[in-house]
Design a protein around this nucleic acid. Structure first.
Length: 491
RNA sequence: GUCUCCUUCGUCUAGUGGUUAGGACACCGGGUUUUCAUCCCGGCAGCAGGGGUUCGACUCCCCUAGGAGAUGCCA
């Protein structure tokens, strides 16, 4: 490893499913590493034992392998700085924390959570001060003995300097300064359960894992001074910081579940393509130039540069993502589309049964060309084509009647179409030709002629191209559905 | 409340002192079309406000306003 190899990390905590914002952070880290010939490290920050779930851990792996983002070091990969689970590094943290305590940079705090809570309430009421009152910072003698006796599981707090200021340089934000008196007074670095907090673990790991750049969301900016103080206390050189713009929902608040799907697994099940997701989120806070907006992951791995990053928050636009998705679906080959839509069709038992039957393959192939230009989300395929697989469809009588016509006229059209069915062929051109002739004969537009048929066959005024649909359905079912329409119109 | 960050069309963005402020999504109109969609063409729409600096500010500085984030023994 050369002296100046860039090393970045994505450090999720397995407490929930991978969120679009987190994935975007991971992407930028990954791209930065790939574009510079650096290393991308995955580190699992599982120091919160309360909120940890195995599901969430699993989701990290499935999400990134689905997206095709691989890490150079991390769980399940041998790396020079293993282990990559923070829960397996507690001895390391303890050693460093003890070192801090010994040198007077940190101290034990025996305050009970009840006292802390009461204090917070009081502060809220009187609107005075905020944060820990540092009662244990200078404890000694009998006071110390008494406190020790009261609480056998003390936490360790970091001493924030009582005056002066702390500053750091951010690649994007520039210089950020903060008075030490404005920093959270003495944050906890070792919890009573023996696990470190984020602040400590992140600093120790980034240093020992030789991380050169921290790319993470801007919500972390306020806690950087704490980290800087920690680096100083250890006598370490901090990495370079680069705080990424946040991803917001439509209402301008931090993107969360109430804005819609936010976890990658949700996006996947709704039928978003990874290509679309990757492409879209790469453009959330980053751009290449003034016009180009289509990028594959491989291209991004070459083109990404940190200086094209934007610093203002961006709101997540589902509409644009959908548009990208449609674009990528259309780029796929027939076979690819087939594999993509198959699971969505099979979600419906009746549809699945037909697909697995003798005629299944033929219908499925037909469906592809019907929907290829029409899908925005893969899940749309089922409602769009279900009528081709089931025995019967329901429809409103009103829908059968073209605008400015009545039931009688609609019946007349239906009767005419029944005649036309006798001449129905494999050629859409021929079919269209004599349907058109019939429309002229009846003095109606082709669109109007087709409306009752469309509704009778598909159950909706909106459908894939009709003639192809009729062919796929088979004349027998077509006639049956048309008769049903006539019955309904007569009733 | 306090601290920190942010501010170009509704949204994502290009722009780094001199541009008719460009592109994309969305939206609206038109064309192609058997509905829908695709596709093509066109349109609407923006530099938050106020002060400076300058021959000249979207671009630099200051103030105001607005927005967001943080303020945990969560990350």
């Amino acid at each position: 490893m050369s002296e100046n190899t860039i090393r970045v990390r994505y450090a999720p905590s397995p407490t929930g499913y991978q969120h679009i914002g987190g994935v975007r952070t991971a992407l930028f880290n990954y791209l930065f590493a790939r574009a510079t010939g650096g290393k991308f490290i995955l580190r699992i920050e599982d120091t919160d034992q309360e909120r940890f779930t195995k599901d969430a851990l699993e989701d990290i792996y499935t999400t990134f392998s689905w997206l095709g983002m691989d890490w150079d070091e991390g769980p399940d990969k041998e790396g020079p700085f293993a282990p990559y689970f923070q829960s397996q590094r507690t001895e390391l943290y303890k050693k460093h924390i003890m070192d801090l305590v010994d040198r007077g940079e940190a101290y034990y705090c025996y305050c009970s959570s009840e006292r802390l809570e009461a204090m917070r309430e009081e502060q809220q009421k009187t609107k005075k001060g905020s944060g820990y009152d540092r009662r244990c910072r200078e404890l000694s003698g009998v006071e110390l003995e008494k406190a020790k006796a009261e609480n056998p599981n003390p936490v360790v707090r970091l001493k924030i300097p009582l005056n002066g200021e702390t500053s750091f340089d951010d690649i994007l934000l520039g210089s950020v300064k903060r008075k030490n008196t404005d920093i959270n007074p003495d944050p906890v670095i070792l919890k009573s359960d023996g696990f470190p907090t984020y602040h400590l673990a992140n600093v120790v790991d980034d240093h020992t894992m030789e991380i050169t750049h921290i790319l993470r969301a801007q919500e972390w900016v306020p806690s950087v001074p704490i980290h800087v103080i920690l680096y100083k206390a250890f006598g370490w050189e901090p990495p370079k910081f680069c705080h990424l713009p946040m991803v917001m929902g439509k209402d301008g608040q931090k993107l969360s579940k109430r804005h819609g799907s936010t976890s990658l697994r949700d996006f996947k099940t709704e039928g978003y393509l990874k290509e679309a997701i990757l492409n879209y989120i790469a453009l959330l806070g980053w751009s290449f130039d003034d016009t180009r907006e289509f990028f594959t992951l491989a291209e991004l791995e070459k083109l990404f540069t940190i200086d094209k990053l934007n610093k203002s928050a961006s709101t997540f636009d589902y509409k644009k993502l959908e548009w990208f998705n449609g674009q990528y679906i259309r780029q796929k080959s027939k076979d690819e589309v087939k594999n993509l839509i198959l699971p969505y069709l099979k979600e419906d038992e009746k549809v699945a049964a037909v697909i697995d039957s003798d005629k299944g393959g033929e219908i499925l192939d037909g469906v592809i060309s019907l929907v290829h230009e029409r899908l925005k989300l893969l899940k749309d395929v089922l409602p769009l084509t279900r009528f081709l697989f089931v025995d019967e469809v329901d429809f409103e009588t009103e829908e059968l009647i073209p605008k400015k016509m009545d039931a009688l006229a609609a019946i007349k059209i239906c009767e005419k179409i029944k005649e036309l069915f006798g001449r129905f062929s494999d050629s859409d051109e021929e079919n269209e030709a004599f349907f058109r002739a019939a429309a002229d004969e009846l003095g109606v537009k082709l669109g109007d002629l087709l409306q009752p048929l469309r509704v009778a066959i598909t159950g909706s005024k909106v459908s894939p191209p009709l003639f192809e649909s009729l062919g796929l359905l088979g004349m027998e079912k077509c006639i049956k559905r048309l008769n049903k329409a006539i019955d309904q119109l007569k009733a």
